[in-house]
Simulated assay, not measured.
Amino acid sequence: MTADALPEITSKDPVLVVATLGTGLMAGLYLAFDVGVMPVLARREDERFVAAMRRVNDALDDDTAFGALFLGVFMATGAAARRLARAHRSDAARLARAATVLYGLSVVVSLCVNLPLNRRLRTATCTSAAALAASRKAYEGPWRRANAVRTTACLGALTLLGATARRRTAVRTQ
């Protein structure tokens, strides 16, 4: 990719740029939980783990910007794929569609696994050490596995969107 190619992508296909940057942000968020937040919390006692995850989940649930990014990235990725297909850039459109599917997987995992686990943890009655331990056990392992799927899906989507931009640029610069 030449230095001249980047301005062309930005000015000609801002939807692809938004999709790529948004996917990178979501991949980074999920990865931060995989390699930073959850390993640190894993070393905490049950009460502190549950309290911290409740606070994190409440903050993200109340954050309109996070919700807009979470769903907006999916919409932008799909829109980029449609725009590329309409521009008869079939190879780039195919990559963007695959990225949409991967990012969509992260959305489905979030909605079907992570969010229900967050809600259960929020409403769990943790009045004893045994109840705290049970709530944590029911939450931590499944949540971390699901988050690893989200991270992997977003990193795959990001890779495909990068290839899409390169493919689109290669066609334009030849």
Rank of each mutant, 00 (worst) to 15 (best):
A124P: 11
A124I: 04
L105G: 08
L132K: 12
M75F: 02
T123W: 08
A124C: 07
A129R: 12
T127D: 15
L115Y: 13
G141H: 15
T151M: 06
S110K: 00
A99H: 07
R86F: 15
W143E: 01
T123Q: 10
A96R: 13
S106A: 14
F66N: 04
N114L: 02
N147H: 06
R122I: 02
R122E: 04
A79F: 06
R119K: 10
L102S: 06
T100F: 15
A68F: 14
F74E: 10
D91G: 14
A146I: 02
F74S: 07
Y103S: 06
A68D: 08
R136C: 12
A148V: 01
V73H: 07
G104I: 12
G104T: 04
T125K: 09
V149E: 09
R82D: 10
G78N: 02
F74W: 12
T77G: 12
G78M: 03
A85I: 07
A133G: 10
N118T: 01
A148L: 04
R89H: 12
R86V: 15
G104W: 09
A138F: 08
V101M: 10
T127A: 13
T100D: 07
A79D: 00
A133K: 05
V149F: 05
R89S: 09
A85T: 11
L84Q: 03
R122Y: 00
A129T: 12
C112S: 15
A68V: 15
A76V: 09
L117Y: 04
R122C: 00
A87M: 03
V101R: 07
A92G: 14
A85Q: 09
R83T: 02
N147A: 02
A131I: 13
A79C: 02
T64N: 11
T152L: 14
A93Y: 01
L117F: 07
R97V: 14
L102N: 04
A134W: 08
R86C: 11
T100R: 01
G72W: 03
V109S: 08
H88T: 15
A130E: 09
A96P: 11
V101H: 05
E140M: 00
G67C: 00
A87H: 05
F74D: 09
W143Y: 09
A99M: 07
A79K: 02
G104D: 09
A65Y: 09
T77M: 10
K137S: 13
T64W: 14
A81G: 14
L117A: 07
L95M: 13
C112Q: 15
T152I: 09
L111H: 13
L95F: 06
S110R: 00
G67H: 08
T123E: 11
W143G: 01
A93L: 07
S135I: 12
E140W: 00
S106W: 03
A79P: 00
G72K: 02
V107M: 07
A80R: 08
L115P: 01
T125I: 08
T152Y: 03
R86M: 11
K137D: 10
L84Y: 02
S135D: 06
R150A: 01
T77P: 06
R150H: 10
N147T: 01
S110L: 02
S110Q: 00
L132D: 04
A148M: 04
A81K: 14
G104P: 13
V113G: 01
F74G: 11
T100W: 10
L121N: 00
G72F: 07
A76D: 03
Y139I: 12
A98C: 12
L105F: 11
V73K: 08
L115W: 11
A148H: 06
S90V: 13
A138W: 08
L102Y: 06
C126Q: 04
R83L: 04
A124M: 04
